[in-house]
Nucleic acid binder design. Sequence first.
RNA 1: GGCGGCAUAGCCAAAUGGUAAGGCAGCAGCCUGCAAAGCUGUGUAUUCCCGGUUCAAGUCCGGGUGCCGCCUCCA
Length: 465
Amino acid sequence: MTLRFFNTLSRSKESFVPREEGKVGLYTCGPTIYNFAHIGNFRAYVFEDLLKRYLQFRGYAVHHIMNLTDVEDKLIRTCREKNESLKTVTARYAQAFFEDIATLGIVPADRYPAATDHIDEMIELIKVLRDKGHTYESNGSIYFRLSTFPGYGKLSHMDMDQLQQGGSGRVDSDEYEAENARDFALWKAWDEDDGEVFWETELGKGRPGWHIECSAMSMKYLGKSFDVHCGGVDNVFPHHENEIAQSECATGEMFSKYWLHCAHLVVEGKKMSKSLGNFYTLRDLTEKGIEPLAIRWVLLATHYRQPNNFAFDAVEAAKQSLYRIRDFRMRLQDVRGAGDDLGERCAECEAAFVEAMDDDLNISGGLAAVFDFIRDINRRVDEGTVSEAGAQCAIALLDRLDQVTGVFSPPQADEVPAEIMEQALERQRARRNKDFATADAIRKRLEADGWIIEDTSEGPRVKRA
RNA sequence: GGCGGCAUAGCCAAAUGGUAAGGCAGCAGCCUGCAAAGCUGUGUAUUCCCGGUUCAAGUCCGGGUGCCGCCUCCA
């Protein structure tokens, strides 16, 4: 079985063959840092994290670039409203973004280039396009002339003649002075609403269009042609389509070989919106006391091309699943003695996991393989047929697969406080004396403080509630 | 108007045309001083509806219904 991904370009699953053996250039569209990111955004970033981790697990050296969009219409509007500079706003939300991805256990990209640090590269790219006759100027802005790129539409599979102009109801005609409404801006001439946000360049005073940053930065760090480009489905058109147009017209080479897009997230079955009161940033959820890894689980556990329903019941289920795995690990750590070394069973589980994941990241199948394994090993531990080496083998397997999922990790190594431990031992003494009233009282008291005691043959086990 | 996606148990969610995974919740039992954890058993699932192809359809085809996405700057 080979690794296969659904490529938006062909609308079919294709065997994954990177351009250079063993190496993958990965570009993922990052956030516009004008606000806190919401969980829909993180659905995409968690999907991309899973993709990257799995590629690494399969032995590829992944070079991952994620851009930060730090100049854009909404951002400029935010600056005006808050009367703050562009840098002040973007610095704040960039930091929040990095905190959030750490919270969710997302492995950082190799580099997070910001658009405003790459104005020169964008200018150069626009000049190449201009020299090749793909642009025109109108009132100081520079537009890409779509009619010069016959391949336009190959990603989104849309027939330009069939599209209803303004079908989305989002076109503000005042903003557009293009010859054809679908021509997009490479460079936008300054106007007074832009305030202090502008660059004096040989293309004039203004700022870059949105799409050009991804072309300029991906090509700078990954080359004219690279392997995988990701984003949410809403980016397919026009953003990624425009990136292809700009990039391929400039270089004459294929831009990205594979395009992977994740579906949207809905909350409790409904589109997330502020008016429905179901709009959540990551911070909104953690402030409610929801465990970050349970959020990661929910975002991860649905196949990336399926709409993901973020339901609070599902969050609770995810938390229970996390605990089941943690308890399993704790149990394994207490296994002593001789028995089965589980080498074969562990290999079987890993093979089932890989087989599922190779098929376009079928995470549900992968998780099922792990739960099958857990139930099987728990049974064997009950029977006392697992050796200490076998238990360690199982733990090592979880650690290895945790490199992919990020949700199989051991509990936070929060040391049980000495006084809590002392009470647990006191309860144990009471139990030995058959003083169950005292024992139960201590257990109840500790539970109220957030500690759970489980009696095992090895003595009491104390864990966080 | 154009293009596309989705519909599987109370909830989440898989399934090359071949007995409908897995998790959570629930119920019963084992274990336990009692619990917890674990194990076992437990859901007769009209796979949205109606047709069709096939020895065989959740899966393929046609037609409905419902929800959703994109169609100029939303992951």
